[in-house]
Design a protein around this nucleic acid. Structure first.
Length: 552
RNA sequence: GCCGUCUUAGCUUAGCUGGUGGAGCUUCGGACUGUUAAUCCGAUGGUCGUCGGUUCAAAUCCGACAGACGGCGCCA
């Protein structure tokens, strides 16, 4: 988050700006009916209002006297508590003291911030002394006071405090390290404390809604969520570098994709999806790469590549519409216009999409994309992969993402289905607008074992001629390792067969009851970055992992 | 892996053609019963990333190294 230039007021944790998610009366999930005859946990008739009627009402248990019912700042700011006595707890968000006889403590409780005025004569002397010396970000375990509307208070309401207690299990709270202007490096070193910022809180709340939207969508679409393992002995796809580790004496990898495991699931459950961490060991230094990211992957029996695209645009549209509707306040806090997201998935004249059922992302064939880039003055030839400048040129200023379809087989993975009579494969990359990058990579999967084995070997052996030194070294290393294992039997053909051996379980899926099928992988953090319009993908997670950072 | 930028007090930074390093915030002390990132007065705080070189003299010029950040490639 490049928050440079923002005032400290915007920077340290705080107001959640209109969230309606916070339990209105403490903890309704533990709500007990105080009136019902059946005094059971999770009584279906238990309503929070029955507890709220008495703000000091302890949980309905004779030994729970210490559990005072706490009020929420959000309710105070909504005017629901005016004139009432409230009990609050939270953190010191701002602190202003004057003369040892008056202190303003702006309290943050996760639902918002409110000014609490601690005055001599109103508060008892111990409370006043504690409030005067309270440090920024100290925790307030108990604050009791009366709510009043007051124009002098930010937000229009303040709490006139009678009792104020700090929670200091390790002695007086020290000086909070984050304040005012901060550099990127310092923010990242202090990530565990920086997580209290309003922006990160807003982003993580939006991410939560995004996950919920995904699960709602797939539930409605009849999909089953499955849990493929993140530990794998398959160095699948080849392309990306994997993190390796010792798994009880054998080399194992942190998975970079659940795809192959999902493919194995569709024969019992024809439509499956998963959300798993995926790991990439490349030293990518960009604003859209993480070494650990969250991967939404889905796989479906009987669907072809275009069926898959229709599904993908439906998913992404649902995500965008849901976030636009449910997270408007957090989007505004992040200086984003919810209307921008609301437009995603709607027909936009001039973007090249067809106006079928009013919602459709444009598609462009790979060779059309090459022609278009040539018109724009790029030096690209049929067969080339696209780089960032090409992607930007094709997506600049658009509302909807763009599908680039049916790429040449030799620059795509071996498992993609060949397009009959061409040198291409049935696949598409969904490119986010304005260079937000590849959001989805998807394809129809090949069912042809001979073709997949041929392409797998061809891509492996091509590494020997690669321009990249690491590729050549890796090929040599792998080849020699297999040869050494085979000993006297190490003919070229035997080595190649040995290389293919780990994939045999995957090819079995084609040998026994194969079906045409398709699937895709979506980078949750990439989509979230696009939705929240943030500069860097690392702020899409609480503890981002990049090549230079695994702490805190 | 390649390319670029940066590294000065706890934090954010100024420091031109080399001549004994300035500020804001924090912290500490003082004043203050209506502040809004409180304000006002005073004080503390710096082997200028590390090592080496040029020079009478280096934060400043040169080199190497380290770390961070960013761009490319790879991808989600």
């Amino acid at each position: 988050m490049s928050a440079r230039g923002l005032g400290a007021d915007c920077r340290i944790a705080g107001a959640l700006a209109g969230s309606t998610d916070f339990p209105a009366n403490g903890c309704p999930r533990l709500g007990l009916s105080t009136r019902g005859r059946r005094k059971t946990w999770n009584h279906p008739g238990a309503s929070s209002s029955s507890v709220a009627a008495s703000p000091r009402h302890p949980f309905n248990h004779p030994r729970s006297r210490t559990l005072v019912q706490f009020d929420s700042v959000a309710d105070i700011l909504a005017g629901k508590k005016t004139g009432q006595t409230v009990h609050l707890r939270g953190w010191v968000h701002r602190h202003r003291a004057s003369g040892g006889k008056l202190a303003f403590v702006v309290l943050r409780d996760g639902s918002g911030t409110v000014q609490c005025t601690v005055k001599g004569g109103v508060a008892d002397p111990d409370s006043l002394a504690m409030a005067v010396r309270a440090k920024l970000e100290a925790s307030v375990s108990s604050l009791e006071g009366t709510v009043a509307a007051d124009e002098r208070a930010p937000g229009g309401f303040e709490v006139k405090v009678a009792r104020f207690t700090l929670h200091e299990p390790n002695g007086p709270t020290g000086d909070f390290p984050l304040r005012g202007e901060q550099g990127t490096e310092f923010e990242l070193d202090m990530r565990h404390l920086w997580l209290r910022s309003t922006e990160l809180s807003a982003i993580l709340r939006i991410k939560h809604r995004l996950y919920k939207a995904v699960h709602d969508f797939y539930d409605r679409e009849g999909f089953t969520q499955v849990d493929p393992s993140v530990i794998t002995t398959n160095a699948c796809e080849g392309g990306s570098t994997l993190f390796t580790f010792d798994y009880f004496g054998q080399t194992a990898y942190l998975s970079q994709s659940a795809q192959m495991y999902l493919e194995g699931c569709i024969f019992g459950l024809p439509k499956v999806y998963s959300i798993t961490p995926s790991f990439r060991a490349e030293k990518s230094r960009t604003t859209k790469h993480l070494t650990e990211f969250h991967h939404l992957e889905a796989e479906y029996a009987w669907w072809n590549a275009e069926d898959s695209r229709v599904h993908q645009e439906k998913l992404v549209t649902y995500m965008a519409q849901t976030i636009a509707r449910e997270c408007a306040a957090d989007l505004i806090l992040l200086k984003q216009d919810p209307a921008r997201l609301a437009k995603i998935g709607t027909f936009q004249p001039g973007e090249g999409g067809e106006d079928i059922d009013g919602k459709r992302f444009p598609r462009i064939d790979y060779s059309q994309a090459v022609d278009r880039l040539k018109q724009l003055g790029f030096h690209v030839n049929y067969g080339d992969d696209f780089g960032v400048p090409h992607e930007k040129a094709l997506t600049e200023g658009k509302v909807n993402p763009l599908f680039i379809c049916d790429w040449p087989a030799n620059i795509k993975a071996f498992y993609m289905a060949e397009k009959p009579g061409t040198d291409r494969v049935l696949c598409s990359d969904m490119m986010g607008p304005d260079g937000f990058g590849e959001l989805i990579g998807g394809s129809q999967r090949s069912e042809d074992v001979v073709s997949m084995e041929r392409r797998l070997l061809a891509q492996w052996k091509a590494m020997a001629q690669s321009k990249d030194f690491d590729d050549r070294r890796q090929f040599k290393h792998e080849w020699e390792a297999i040869a050494a294992r085979l000993g006297e039997n190490a003919t070229d053909e035997a080595i190649e067969q040995a290389y293919l051996k780990p994939y045999q379980w995957y090819f079995d899926l084609r040998r026994y009851g194969s079906v045409p099928h398709s699937g895709f992988g979506l980078g949750i953090e990439r989509v979230l970055r696009w939705f929240t319009g943030q500069e860097h993908i690392r702020d899409m997670l609480p503890y981002p992992r990049t090549p230079a950072r695994a702490y805190p």
